[in-house]
């Protein structure tokens, strides 16, 4: 009471307060407007750009293009082998990295004691996940081209790519398993199951959501990765469709886009590049969406 009495007795603060209030309301309005404006404009801008790329490329797509062999000189080359290589390299790299990544993640979450050594392992995993992709390419060259002398091959690209995927898979697995409620684990042990049974029958199924998200993230990243592939698998393909040979050159779709845009001499390079971009965006989005739909459905179900 005495405070307000004093305030009323002094007219200056009341005036100042009123003025400041006006200014701060104005600032608030400006801020709100700015944030809404920037947020909407930026997101629409990026989506618009991608939409533009899709719009240029998608209508021109045909089966001949998706399935056809690339050509160096004449018009009308396709992207068949490159598209096939993309999925082939992705598949092999996941085949290598998923078991190792999962096992390493399980170790860090379940078995690892809390000591300095494990701390170092954790730093290694994080450090590896921050290594720029081109370094994996250089590593791949030194390992496969120089040491094993097998040249630029699909195998080299897939293994280098697997190294790139490893740390992400490890971290995601560790985090998802750690997030499993401790009651579930205790209940499983109380039923007399061993550690392995608990991990296989309880922890992994519950953590599967998170692990799947991680796999889909890495798959998407590996699908669009180009620096590693250029260095370890070259820019060309073997020129045949369905070439399962691990030792043939393995230019993927992302590499093909770069090659066509910057080095190729075919007259319709621009058009091929546009169509390739559209295909690339389409599959990258598809990989992400297909893996995520079950997740979204799950969270919807849990919320409801």
């Amino acid at each position: 009471m005495s405070m307000s009495m004093k305030k009323q007795a002094n007219p200056v603060p009341a005036y100042a307060f009123g003025k400041r209030r006006g200014a701060s309301v104005l600032m608030d309005r400006l801020f709100t407007g700015l944030v809404w404006g920037v947020g909407i404009v930026v997101i629409l801008f990026i989506i618009g750009l991608l939409f533009l790329l899709l719009e240029k490329g998608l209508p021109q797509l045909s089966w001949d293009f998706l399935y056809g062999l690339p050509s160096e000189i004449e018009e009308g080359g396709g992207i068949g082998p490159a598209l096939f290589n993309s999925f082939y390299v992705l598949f092999i790299s996941l085949l290598i990295s998923i078991p190792i990544g999962l096992a390493a993640g399980i170790y860090l979450a379940e078995f690892a004691p809390n000591n300095k050594l494990i701390e170092i392992v954790r730093i290694c995993v994080e450090g590896l996940s921050s290594v720029p992709s081109i370094i994996f390419g250089l590593f791949g060259i030194a390992l496969f081209v120089e040491f094993f002398e097998i040249g630029l091959t699909i195998l080299g690209a897939a293994v280098s790519l697997a190294f790139l995927n490893l740390p992400v898979l490890t971290r995601v697995t560790e985090e998802s398993i750690r997030a499993v409620p401790v009651e579930l684990r205790n209940a499983s042990f109380a039923l007399g199951s061993t550690h392995l049974q608990t991990i296989r029958r309880v922890l992994l199924p519950v953590a599967m959501n998170g692990i799947m998200t991680g796999i889909c993230l890495t798959a998407g990243r590996a699908f669009g990765e180009s620096a590693v592939i250029i260095l370890t698998a070259g820019v060309s393909t073997s020129g045949e469709m369905w070439d399962f040979n691990l030792f043939s050159p393995g230019g993927t779709l992302a590499v093909h886009l770069w090659y066509v845009q910057s080095e190729a001499i075919v007259p319709d390079a621009q058009e091929i590049a546009q169509k390739t971009t559209a295909v690339l965006i389409f599959f990258a989005l598809l990989i992400n969406i297909v893996f995520r739909v079950p997740l979204w459905l799950n969270t919807r179900k849990n919320q409801a």
């Binding site: 990544g101 096992a103 390493a104 078995f111 170092i120 392992v121 290694c124 590896l128 590593f139």
Partner: peptide, 27 residues
Amino acid sequence: SNKLFRIVCIGSALFVCLVLLCILVLM
């Protein structure tokens, strides 16, 4: 199988470290 599984897991974790170490040394 429990022991084996544990060893596989330890091996994988060490493998991740080994990759980083190899890259560092080689570069």
